[in-house]
Design a binder for these strands. Sequence first.
DNA 1: GTTAGCACTCTTTGATATCGAGTGCTAACA
DNA 2: TGTTAGCACTCGATATCAAAGAGTGCTAAC
Lengths: 341, 341
Amino acid sequence: MEMDERKTKILQAIIRNYLETGEPVGSRTISKYTDLNLSSATIRNEMADLEEMGYIIQPHTSAGRIPSDKGYRFYVDTLMEAKEREVADMKDMLLERQDKLEDMLKTVVKYLAKDTQYATMITAPTTHLNKLKFIQLSRVDAGHLLAVVVIEGNMIRNRMIDVAEEIDDETMLKLNMLLNTQLNGLAIEQINLSMVAKLKQQAGIHSGVIGDVIDEVIETLSEDKDLEVYTSGANNIFKYPELADNENASRLISAFEEKEILGDIIQPGEGSDETGIQVYIGGENKNSGMQDCSVVTATYDLGDGMKGTIGIVGPRRMDYDKVVGTLKSIKTKLDDLYRKE
Amino acid sequence: MEMDERKTKILQAIIRNYLETGEPVGSRTISKYTDLNLSSATIRNEMADLEEMGYIIQPHTSAGRIPSDKGYRFYVDTLMEAKEREVADMKDMLLERQDKLEDMLKTVVKYLAKDTQYATMITAPTTHLNKLKFIQLSRVDAGHLLAVVVIEGNMIRNRMIDVAEEIDDETMLKLNMLLNTQLNGLAIEQINLSMVAKLKQQAGIHSGVIGDVIDEVIETLSEDKDLEVYTSGANNIFKYPELADNENASRLISAFEEKEILGDIIQPGEGSDETGIQVYIGGENKNSGMQDCSVVTATYDLGDGMKGTIGIVGPRRMDYDKVVGTLKSIKTKLDDLYRKE
DNA sequence: GTTAGCACTCTTTGATATCGAGTGCTAACA
DNA sequence: TGTTAGCACTCGATATCAAAGAGTGCTAAC
């Protein structure tokens, strides 16, 4: 048996209707809902076919049909009309570029949650060409130095370093020179132990300080291991009864709280198509706790190799058109935002 | 009518029993549970008295009794035996002091959630003697300066500043001197517009840079407005049916997600008693979303005026002994931790 | 003051009946 | 040959009812 146009239309009608109401949809409804002018009996025959083909499911004998994962997949791949939607202007949300990135991400994710009524998340961009750009060592007070490490893409990290001996200004200058001339422009793979040893040797009695700085440099450069994730609207899952039962809710909430789990869910698109948007329906999710959810992800790119992912988690009967449309728009705006500068 | 010793014992037995089982407790149970050697009929009389006095409640005619807020309050104030409990050693959790504070807080809050099986939160310490300690302005690349602001208590903030004109090393040195000599040691109230104007004038063509730095200084000094809160174990609420219904759960989850709300809940103890630990039972909570919860808070003090609050949120029938005991221990360890240095 | 006894109340549980939505199948129709 | 009307059937949802059980309040006796 194969898909003809009429079956397609009926399947589409079933899915559209189910997305709206959340109730299994019966043959009579479709008979009136579509412009096919067919009786419910005919629809019933077609529905039996669609069920045999695996696109729809009957929860129990005397109920209507609901879409299966395969049905949703068909819908998303060929029937969906995801037009770009009007979204809030990023520029209004945005403050400054570098150090307020965090605020911007939080704003975006909050906006998305409110707009879509699903649970949302966003990962901070991770740059993969992590090169050291600048190191600044300063004397804060008698016992403390402050090391500031800046990497390509202007990610910044600080570290306080305890020092036993007092360090005079001249030495500070020397240490700064030493660090910047030796290390700037290097990636993590390029910093080896012999370099570190040489640096420490040159630093003389202050080799301990150098060690601490190097630690911080390494940590900064390899930061993308524990990537930051911001979330919003986790409580939206309670709007969808199929996710709101204790077991599901507990699992999802703890996933949204333990950001590490989220990292796995929105691995930046392995099967990246040209749009950068990906849809995972129900059982398609690798994560076992997400089998009753659909997840839509979008990869954004701020340039300089800084990429991050936006994720939206909702029930299977998610409004795919709306979500994909919104994500497309947001993605476009984010992509453009920094490029134009 | 007044509380005598026998009534006290019975009330205590009712509460203990209810905390354990979560079921209304009847007269027969108490008759056997206590060492009073009284028949269930006598207990019934006493229970009628206790109900009249408002310490216990009957959910419906043929059910046992459960404690009222007043009953819990009496228990917490006079009957509870909160002995300090063995807790994990903070030192094992702790890495370094200054810049890893965040990690430490996250570890503590996660530990607490696991240990108590309630939802937990902790606010980062806010110092109220916010004095500027140190400013460092450095040249990162052609178009960018980096401003680092450190305040008393070693809180650090960074800000990238775009500059149009190239700035040479000598000018940088001058600007740094200028900023540090004029501003160090000052609190936010002490920085007025005439100072800023004078600084800008001294900076000449680079007055724009000074303006940006001042902005950042002000933001850093007044930071405690949007205080950071870390949470863990929000999904624990699903373990308690009285909190796990959709409405309550949704409210609580969104409170735990929107950290601002939490800030209100755990306002650092206004009625601070000597222990620094506070218990809010059910309706005693000011926040309307928390009426079905009990909240226990503890204020910790890292010295230098750096204070923060730990909060534990659970059902009314929370194991107060355990929670208060654990918080006491954690608080002690946190208080000691930095003092000893 | 304490207790045994008993009628009473109210939730919980399970069984049973009814309703209605929706189906699948058959036979008639165009 | 595809479409449709008709009808028996299935099964969840809802309501009703009875029985069980836990616990109480009250009375009368100890």
